[in-house]
Design a binder for these strands. Structure first.
Length: 476
RNA sequence: GGUCCCAUCGUCUAGCGGUUAGGACGCCGCCCUCUCACGGCGGAAGCAGGGGUUCAAUUCCCCUUGGGACUACCA
C-alpha cells in the first residue's frame, strides 16, 4: 500500500504558519516514504469558505515549495457520499435522528454548567421511536461504556473513556455533513494512510475512530503534532505579529529558510541546523517529532534567512530578489540587467537578513539622487580629504576599462600611498560620497556597482561639498 | 469545571540510567577589518518542585506546580 498523506485546510483565510508546518510535515513524510501528498479543501461550511482563501492556500503552499499530487479534492463536492454515509449509519443503528432545537441544546448546556457538569448532549432523542415531521440532525450513537484508544505516531498510546465523548452531530438539519463525518468519509475515499495534523484534533480522532468502525472502513495511522506558540507561550495568533506565510514573503524571507525553521519546530536531526530540501526529506521521520509545543521565534528565522541568503546559489537568489522587487513595487530607476542586480545581491547578502532589508539598503544603487546622511557627511567629507578625493575622481575618470572592483583597486591604493593614508581615511569619504552613508558594501564593489558616470557625478558633488566647507561657506 | 497533552539554558533543541548536560539563535568579550556585516575564538545562561525505583537519576514511576488543547448543527 503506497503511503498517502494529505493536508486538509479549511479555506477561511491565508495559509498561516501553523498550517504551513502541518503541510510541511505531511509533505516531508510523504516524500520521505516515497508516497503521495494530497490536498483537500474542507469547505463543508459554505458560509465561511471563500474562493480567495482557496487561492491563498494554493499560493502559500507553492511559495513554500510544497507540491501536491493529484487534483485537490473539494470536500463539498462529496456531499452525496457524506449523506449516504449518514444514511448508512442511521440504517445500521449507529446513528439516530435528533429533533432538539438549537435553543433547547443551549438551555441543556446551560443547566449542566449550572450543576457543574460537563456540557454535552444528553442523548434525549437517542431512544425515541416516533418520527415527527420536524427538522432533525443526525447524531452518532457513541458507545456509552468502554473506551477508545489508538497509538499516536507522535504521542504514543492515547486512550479516552467513551462516556467523555457525547453524541456528535454528523449531518446538520439542512442535510449538509459536519466535519467529523466528512473527514472520515474523505480520508477513506482518498485512501489516506497517515493522518498528520495539529494537536487540537486529538479529541476528534477518538470520535472519528468510532466512525471508521461503524462504517466498516480501514483506519489510517494518526499523528498529532504539538501546536506552535507565540513568544508569550500562547497559541500563535494575529497579535503575535505576522502569521500568514504571505506576510513573511512580503517581509523578504526565503521559502528555504521558512521551511528549515518550520521543520525544526518540534523536530530535529542531531545537531544539524541547516538542511537542503533533500536532506530534510531524507532525515525526516514523523516518529522523531517531539511532543511538546514550541515557540515560533522570529530571531531564529532571521538568522536562518541570513544563512540562506549567504549560502544559496547566487543566480537563484538574484531571480528571487528580482521577483521580490517586482512584487513589492520597488523601483530600480537605473538602466540595469540581471548581472548588475546579481552584483548587488552578492555585495549585500553578507550584511542583510531579508530581501526587504536588502532592498532598503540598496537605495543608493537603485536611485540616482543621493540622500546624504548629514552626520556621515560632516564626519567624513572634510577639507583634508579634498586632494585625495579629487585624485580618486580623476583616476576613475582616466580609467579606460570598466570600473571593476579589481581595476579600481590599484589606482586607489596608489593615492593612499602618495598621501600616506590608511585605507579607512579614503574609503570612508569615498563611501559617503558614493552612497551618502557611512555604511555600505566594500568600497571597490560600491564603485563597480555604481558605475563610472554616477561615480564621477557623485564624487563631483562631494568635492563641491568639501570645497564649500573649506572656504567656510558651510559651517564645519 | 471536565477530558487529554506537555515540561533540559530567554528561545529552538541533543540526551534515550553513569556526560565536565552538547549544538543553534539571541546576549557579552576578543580577533579579523575601508564602514556595516560575514567569519573565527571565548564567556554568561538550563534539567520546574517534591517523593519514590535503583549502586546510580536530566533520563523510569507518582504527586504538586506551571503551560497548552479540546469541550458547536466551525473546521
Amino acid at each position: 500500500m503506497t503511503p498517502r498523506l494529505r493536508f486538509a485546510p479549511s479555506p477561511t483565510g491565508d495559509l498561516h504558519v501553523g498550517g504551513a508546518r502541518t503541510a510541511l510535515f505531511n509533505w516531508l513524510y510523504a516524500r520521505h516514504l516515497g508516497g503521495q501528498f494530497l490536498l483537500r479543501i474542507e469547505d463543508t461550511d459554505r458560509e465561511r469558505s471563500t474562493e480567495h482563501a482557496v487561492r491563498a492556500i494554493f499560493d502559500g503552499l507553492t511559495w513554500l515549495g510544497l507540491d501536491w499530487d493529484e487534483e485537490p479534492l473539494f470536500q463539498h463536492a462529496r456531499e452525496a457520499a457524506h449523506r449516504a454515509a449518514a444514511a448508512q449509519l442511521l440504517q445500521s443503528g449507529h446513528a439516530y435522528r435528533c429533533y432538539c432545537t438549537t435553543s433547547e441544546l443551549e438551555q441543556m448546556r446551560e443547566e449542566q454548567r449550572a450543576h457543574g457538569a460537563k456540557p454535552r448532549y444528553n442523548g434525549r432523542c437517542r431512544h425515541r421511536s416516533d418520527a415527527p415531521d420536524l427538522p432533525f440532525v443526525v447524531r452518532f450513537k457513541t458507545p456509552s461504556d468502554g473506551s477508545i484508544a489508538f497509538d499516536d505516531l507522535i504521542k504514543g498510546r492515547m486512550v479516552v473513556a467513551n462516556d467523555e465523548l457525547d453524541d456528535l452531530v454528523l449531518q446538520r438539519s439542512d442535510g449538509t455533513p459536519t466535519y467529523n463525518l466528512a473527514v472520515v468519509c474523505d480520508d477513506a475515499a482518498m485512501r489516506i494512510t497517515h493522518v498528520i495534523r495539529g494537536d487540537d484534533h486529538v479529541n476528534n480522532t477518538f470520535r472519528q475512530l468510532h466512525l471508521y468502525r461503524a462504517l466498516g472502513l480501514t483506519e489510517p495511522a494518526f499523528g498529532h503534532m504539538p501546536l506552535i506558540l507565540g513568544d508569550d507561550g500562547a497559541k500563535l495568533s494575529k497579535r503575535h505579529g505576522a502569521t500568514s506565510v504571505f506576510e513573511y514573503a512580503r517581509l523578504g524571507y526565503l521559502p528555504a529558510a521558512m521551511r528549515n525553521h518550520l521543520a525544526r519546530l518540534g523536530w530535529s536531526h542531531g545537531d544539524q541546523e541547516h538542511f537542503t530540501t533533500d536532506e530534510l526529506i531524507a532525515a525526516f521521520d514523523i516518529h522523531e517529532v517531539g511532543s511538546s509545543p514550541s515557540v515560533f521565534a522570529l530571531q531564529k528565522l532571521d538568522s536562518l534567512n541570513g544563512w540562506y541568503l549567504r549560502n544559496s546559489d547566487l543566480d537563484e537568489l538574484t531571480d528571487l530578489f528580482a521577483k521580490y522587487l517586482d512584487r513589492e513595487g520597488i523601483a530600480v530607476e537605473v538602466d540595469h540587467d540581471r548581472s548588475w542586480l546579481r552584483q548587488i545581491v552578492a555585495a549585500q547578502r553578507e550584511r542583510t537578513t531579508t530581501f526587504k532589508e536588502m532592498a532598503e539598503k540598496s537605495g543608493y544603487f537603485f536611485r540616482t539622487p543621493l540622500e546624504l546622511d548629514e552626520e556621515a557627511a560632516h564626519k567624513h567629507l572634510r577639507p583634508v580629504v579634498l586632494e585625495p578625493l579629487r585624485e580618486l575622481r580623476d583616476a576613475l575618470a582616466a580609467l579606460d576599462a570598466p570600473l571593476t572592483a579589481e581595476a579600481v583597486k590599484t589606482p586607489f591604493e596608489a593615492i593612499l600611498a602618495r598621501h600616506e593614508l590608511k585605507m579607512g581615511k579614503l574609503a570612508q569619504p569615498a563611501r559617503v560620497a558614493l552612497t551618502g552613508s557611512a555604511i555600505s558594501p566594500g568600497i571597490f564593489d560600491v564603485i563597480e556597482i555604481t558605475g563610472k558616470q554616477r561615480c564621477l557625478d557623485r564624487l563631483d558633488a562631494a568635492l563641491a561639498y568639501v570645497e564649500r566647507r573649506a572656504t567656510g561657506e558651510l559651517a564645519s
